[in-house]
């Protein structure tokens, strides 16, 4: 009898300790999240450099970026790519990560007027740059003409590559208002569409630049 009681007590104790443990973990998580959330405004302690590393080594630093016309200052780890920083630190999830090796172009953003795969840029190297992401393409809450045409013309099927294609296309159209088909294909050659919808994508660019008439069934409202 007494043994049974003992066991019961033991169990209770273990339950309590488990609860305490879980509670502690949650508190820790909350604090961690708060620290990450506040990273844009206050400086965290930062990771400690390993023993033996020279003191002037930079493991991360504050950088200033102009993202979609808004100037921000944020702390970045030296290892973070620009794609990760935009997605996780800035909350701009429109920049999608495909291959993460600069081969598929789905993470393309416009840096200082030039399209670049953001997974291949270290965020720490982008200090002081002006960046435009897919979130900055729409004008006043309305989709841009380029996006509208691409949607109407069914340029994308699954749409995963869409943000990358739109950013590459925008970088081209910002530089040249009436590119030829060859120039369009060259400018988009760094982007990969696994649904192989290239024809419609190039066609919608020709339509939006006024070099081709949209299909009648699309312009009349009856979508293809």
């Amino acid at each position: 009898m007494s043994e049974e009681k003992k066991e019961e007590k033991k169990e209770e104790k273990s339950v309590v300790s488990r609860r305490a443990f879980i509670g502690g973990t949650i508190a820790g998580l909350v604090v961690g999240a708060a620290a990450a959330y506040g990273a844009t405004t206050m400086m965290p302690a930062g990771p400690k450099p390993p023993v033996g590393a020279p003191k002037e080594a930079i493991r991360g630093k504050f950088i200033s970026l102009t993202v979609n016309g808004k100037a921000t200052s944020l702390w970045v780890d030296a290892r973070w790519s620009l794609a990760n920083t935009l997605r996780n630190s800035q909350g701009l999830r429109g920049t999608v990560k495909g291959c993460d090796y600069g081969e598929c172009g789905s993470c393309t953003v416009i840096v200082d007027g030039r399209a670049m795969p953001s997974c291949m840029v270290l965020a720490i190297d982008a200090d002081g740059r002006t960046i435009q992401t897919i979130e900055g393409v729409s004008e006043g809450g309305k989709l841009s003409a380029l996006q509208e045409t691409m949607i109407k013309h069914r340029a994308f099927q699954c749409g995963f590559c869409g943000p990358g294609f739109i950013m590459s296309a925008k970088a081209l159209l910002d530089k040249k208002s009436r590119p030829t088909e060859d120039e369009i294909r060259e400018a988009l050659s760094g982007n990969v569409c696994r649904c192989t919808g290239y024809h419609r994508i190039v066609e919608s660019l020709l339509i939006v630049t006024g070099q081709k008439q949209p299909l009648e069934r699309i312009s009349s409202g009856a979508i293809a």
């Binding site: 080594a57 930079i58 991360g60 030296a78 290892r79 973070w80 993460d100 270290l122 720490i124």
Partner: peptide, 10 residues
């Protein structure tokens, strides 16, 4: 961060 190991940046 699972990809990239820590390094110093100058």
């Amino acid at each position: 961060l699972r990809y990239i190991t820590r390094f110093a940046h100058y």
